[in-house]
Design a protein around this nucleic acid. Structure first.
Lengths: 211, 211
DNA sequence: CGTAAATTTGAATGGATTCAAACGTGGTGG
DNA sequence: CCACCACGTTTGAATCCATTCAAATTTACG
């Protein structure tokens, strides 16, 4: 993100940037809070959550290593979601003031930010077409494929059934049922508690794209 | 969008900006095409469509007056969706080259673009929470409320059942059934063909937020 | 006026939800 | 160390909602 900065500018930026480690399930910020800082993910996962009118919550986006959390801060907005860590997660905290300063003096940072915005938009659109259409089986398969793509091997982070459900707009019970079916069919390996599960990518792809 | 430009810059920009009128159902651009231009909507509606693996199509976003169509062009990307007009629509065509030029000389345009990106993101998130959760009745009610908010009166653009369905991830038949029910209950007025329908906002709100 | 396309309605089916209970896991305190 | 509780997951059975397939109806357009 800070490519194209001069050494001086970089140093100036770095003094105000903190490196933070959150444990699993921590709230990073709450929707509506004044946006004092944005974050980049160095390790772990972050979920952006929005409350439904009915009181439940829906996961709007899942952010991965390299993604920016709270990018809306860059235009002076308050936070649009509530953000939680999933698994132990390491974040870089970048104060809004630092962004403002650099933004003016350095147009290439502006471009970097635009690229990040577009990436977020792509993720959102993907959620709309892949995670909100098709049967429960199809959605879960697509989510597992998505998660597998984050790791270099075929393991995927063991996400809770509740989180699965609120990402895919299905109940935790159906999420559980579908995963049980996948296990029976060998689409995913036996899930050791909390351990990442091995996925049968070929089989999952076949399930995800019914012809 | 071109606030904060000097008269000279504005003139220079305006010579390359075309004003176009499309009739209903026209394709503005196709997904994957090289992005030579972006557009702003002066009148009408635009739908951004993405093809599902199964061959069907899903409406990812509905753009209204003042929105930017094809904003990804500003970072040199090809089009991420296929764009169609809904109803007769008037667009401003802004060549990518014009954006590039102004982008460098004028940082305030960059900020304007970021705001637009964030707006798109907000719309996408809204689609995820409001148009992809709840029963068919609830989703249709929320869509009608959303459309009503675009007009200043309580009328809302008569969107086809097919488009309704592919916005809400329901079939055209259920969309039709739900609308029939709403008509019976007086949630929407009798729909004169192609004419905008009058909505009973209070009743729709009650349906949209089941307590 | 006649054909094509979109909308509406019906009946049967299937899939997801709901409500409930059982199970396993981890943490706490006796 | 074990009993106990809280919490997430799993499984079951009944219900409900949306889909599917089909046909009738209306609307648009040449």
């Amino acid at each position: 993100m800070f490519a194209d900065l001069t050494p001086d500018e970089l140093n100036e930026a770095l003094v105000v940037i903190d490196d933070l480690v959150y444990q699993s399930g921590c709230m990073i910020y709450r929707k509506g809070d004044e946006g004092n800082a944005l974050f980049t993910i160095r390790r772990g996962l972050v979920k952006l959550v929005r409350e439904l009118p009915e009181g439940e919550q829906r996961i709007v986006r899942l952010l991965k290593v390299g993604d920016v959390v709270g990018i809306e801060v860059a235009i002076g907005s308050s936070y649009k979601h509530t953000a939680f860590t999933i698994g132990e997660t390491e974040l870089c905290r970048i104060p809004a003031s630092a962004i403002e300063q650099l933004d003016i003096s350095h147009p290439s940072l502006a471009r970097q930010l635009m690229v990040r915005w577009q990436n977020s938009l792509d993720d959102a659109d993907r959620a709309l077409v892949e995670f909100s259409t098709g049967t429960a089986e199809v959605r879960v398969a697509r989510l597992l494929l998505h998660l597998s793509a984050l790791s270099h091997d075929a393991t995927c982070v063991d996400i809770g059934r509740q989180d699965m459900g609120s990402m895919l707009s299905i109940t935790t019970e159906t999420a559980s049922r579908v995963m049980a079916g996948f296990r029976r069919r060998g689409a995913v390996g036996e899930t050791g508690r909390g351990a990442p599960c091995r996925c049968n990518l070929d089989l999952l792809k076949r399930i995800a794209n019914p012809d």
